[in-house]
């Protein structure tokens, strides 16, 4: 059975984004990156730990009426490096691309160092350099190695 067949387990969307090949178990973190918690009314389908030929187990997230910003894709790449992003218009995939790990992620993550200037009331966005393992705040040098998703900025 191909991945495409598996996708039928989750309903099709009309216009929006399908994020596929998410590392198994990371779907809720992906939603957190997108700032979706259900309260704002987006139509979302989530498949978790779906069998996949390529990845054994993967997650899928489909969001109706929403496209991703580059910042969101950058952070997504840190927790789901194999993810593919499909832009859907009128039930057709019109664009499909893989995420790429950037050299820096801006905004989205918040620095775990409470004494970091980026956590103060200043007109500055968080900025993290991407390391081989983890990310590092370019302002205060704090390194986040595990559970990067826990540091996603909550609006």
């Amino acid at each position: 059975m191909s991945d495409d067949d598996r996708e039928l387990r989750v309903s099709k969307i009309r216009n929006g984004t399908v994020i596929d090949h998410i590392t198994g178990g990371q779907a809720l973190n992906v939603l957190a990156i997108l700032g979706i918690n259900g309260s704002s009314g987006e139509e979302v389908s989530v498949g978790m730990n779906v069998p996949s030929d390529r990845m054994k187990r993967k997650d899928i997230v489909k969001v109706e009426g929403r496209e991703l910003s580059q910042n969101e894709v950058d952070v997504l790449s840190l927790i789901a490096p194999a993810a593919t992003i499909n832009i859907v218009r009128d039930y057709e995939v019109v664009e499909k691309h893989r995420v790429e790990t950037p050299s820096e992620v801006v905004g989205v993550l918040s620095c775990p160092n409470h004494n970091c200037i980026t956590t103060a009331q200043e007109p500055v966005e968080s900025r993290f350099e991407v390391l081989d393992e983890g990310v590092r705040c370019v302002y205060c040098d704090t390194i986040i190695r595990q559970n990067i998703a826990e540091h996603i900025e909550v609006e």
């Binding site: 160092n113 004494n115 970091c116 200037i117 705040c137 302002y139 205060c140």
Partner: peptide, 13 residues
């Protein structure tokens, strides 16, 4: 001199 880490870097911006 400032009590927050990264303050000098931010100031230069």
């Amino acid at each position: 001199r400032h009590p927050s880490e990264g303050s000098a870097k931010m100031a230069t911006e």
